[in-house]
Design a protein around this nucleic acid. Structure first.
Lengths: 350, 350
DNA sequence: GTGAAAGCGCTAACAT
DNA sequence: ATGTTAGCGCTTTCAC
């Protein structure tokens, strides 16, 4: 039982398949209404749906894109994906989701597979990737949008979305300084990730702008997960002097910190202000709710897809078109930040 | 600059495209090694990759499946997706991810699109769906695996994966009873969802098995989200008598309950035992860590994909093959459950 | 062992 | 306003 084809419809409607094709593609200009209706009725009757596969073979468009993410379980990505998907849906596109699981070889494999499938474009949103991927895509002439927080990008002519961490982090530091904080610390992500460096640098610069020597600011490495935050807070406790405000590289880290402060009887924000970054949904649900630098994830996804469409619209030239955008971050004030404790460093209980 | 085709390879290797096709599909049986090598070299040299689109047109297989989920932001789905993806990858399949956002029309649209794209199969994992979807898929002869916790299934001949909530929930209740609990309550999901009913029924039956009249067990409706849990706990507090153990329909609800107990100074598990269901990663990270009935999400995904492949292997007949499986749930004991408080009902503070 | 030719289900000139 | 004819890039008989 094979699917009904355009030929059968043509036969049923007593026209040629060219005519059927015309009504399919809405080429109503030169079509007698009566025949159009007749064809449409036949289509209905036979429950005919044109094969995208056959269409793609001639049109050279699959209306399909591939999205590579590091790990969809990471709360960052689902929101990005929603943005991508909603933009894609509007243009009638479908999206292949590919988890690299932080595995470059797996990513390479997916890239190949996507190229073979003749996707119209690829979105790379993995936190790290290999140049090889870009090379493959480039020589297959597949447009790419890259979520740019890796240093490798430079030197390659790919379209990118970059995140302006500075803006939001500056606002956050200002907020803390206004509360009287002068002793800060930072819990970063894995130090080899560019995004970790970006966030740390933005923070230290912002702090420096308020006359605080960045060299005096303790920086502890986390892993962008809750347990990393706990661990970091633990280490922080052995410092001779506790800071009054803590900036974590992401919300999960901040949440871990929160958990650990509670275990040690440190009151947030009375004794310690804690600041996250991301604004995942969980941030609003913690106790206390987390003050954080919001990263517009949905918008990032949406934008990435839009940029891709921009690329797709332009007549595919032999040279690579490049488009780029910067995405803003903003401060969301909740309950985990407050006035700096007066007098002594926070008391340690427990 | 169009992609290189099988013809060019044939020309370069000085053979016919039939021969190239043979080496592509590993038809080495009747091929002289020397020619095979020659062709392979040409393939390398031209960086030739056969078009999946063209292949699909003849082979009638796209090596592609569609997965419909309600909302990939729901922590339940990413794990399922990983399972699906890993199984799919092993067989060289790619997967379209489609969020219905709990919108039946959107789901319908995706189904149509997937059919048009000639996917080899569809996995439906939305918490609710419409019969229409199944009808469309059936008449297009597209195999479906359904994550079955909706009543609509019955009467339709679809392959399903069902979840055996009973087993895990029974174990959980037993665990609580052994700790002396006799006064239970349940915070369910939206009452119209079959899965909500299943969980509630399983719980009440398990409780009844220990000689407790289910009619005396308070049941409050939640929404499977944290805020629903908070709200439910709030309502619970106005009851004349507080239970000593609470079973929530899922972990997020339980986490919300935990948050609210803290706000009201109720100690968990000393005054109240709280039990969740799902075992999302967050469950291990809460304070206290959540005791929960684990739902093997990764395995569900893996299994779903495997079942689909089973269907795909069978010669596509005119009648619909049906395969089905039951997935087990298990109890994971952590810190949110403990001995029932002795004497009076828990004291309310704050 | 390898080639020629037909066909998969469409679209897009080019005719009429 | 509609039909005819080539492809699109492969796979697959069927010959030789």
């Amino acid at each position: 039982m094979s699917r009904t084809t355009i030929d059968e419809v043509a036969k049923a409607a007593g026209v040629s398949k060219a005519t059927v094709s015309r009504v399919l593609s809405g080429n109503h200009k030169h079509l007698r209404t009566s025949t159009r209706l007749r064809v449409e009725k036949a289509i209905q009757a036979l429950n005919f749906r044109p094969s995208s596969v056959a269409r793609s073979l001639t049109s050279k468009r699959t209306h399909t894109v591939g999205v590579l993410v590091a790990d969809i379980s990471n709360p960052f990505y689902p929101d990005v994906f929603h943005g991508i998907e909603d933009s894609a849906l509007k243009e009638g596109y479908s999206v292949f989701l590919c988890n690299t699981n932080y595995d470059l070889a797996r990513g390479k494999h997916y890239i190949q597979s996507l190229i073979d499938k003749r996707v119209d474009g690829v979105l790379i949103m993995t936190s790290s990737f290999s140049q090889e991927w870009l090379v493959e895509l480039e020589r297959s002439n597949v447009p790419v949008i890259l979520l740019d927080w890796e240093v490798q990008t430079r030197g390659h002519n790919v379209s990118t979305i970059a995140v302006d961490f500075q803006r939001g982090i500056q606002a956050a530091v200002e907020h803390l300084v206004q509360w009287g904080h002068r002793r800060f610390a930072h819990v970063g992500g894995p130090p080899h990730l560019q995004t970790s460096k970006d966030r740390r640098t933005a923070f230290l610069q912002a702090v420096a702008a308020h006359g605080i020597d960045p060299a005096t600011v303790p920086v502890i490495d986390g892993n962008l997960r809750i347990d990393g935050g706990r661990q970091a807070m633990h280490e922080l406790l052995s410092l001779p002097e506790l800071p009054t405000a803590l900036f974590a590289a992401n919300d999960l880290t901040a949440l871990g910190i929160l958990l650990e402060t509670r275990a040690h009887g440190i009151a947030v924000p009375e004794q310690l202000s804690v600041l996250g970054l991301d604004d995942i949904w969980l941030a609003a649900q913690s106790d206390p709710p987390l003050t954080t630098v919001a990263l517009p994830r949905y918008e990032i996804g949406q934008l990435a897809m839009r940029l891709l469409f921009e690329l797709l619209e332009k007549p595919r030239a032999d040279y690579i078109e490049v488009v780029s955008t910067l995405v803003r971050t903003t401060l969301v004030v909740r309950g985990s930040t407050g006035p700096a404790p007066t007098g002594e460093a926070p008391v340690r209980v427990g």
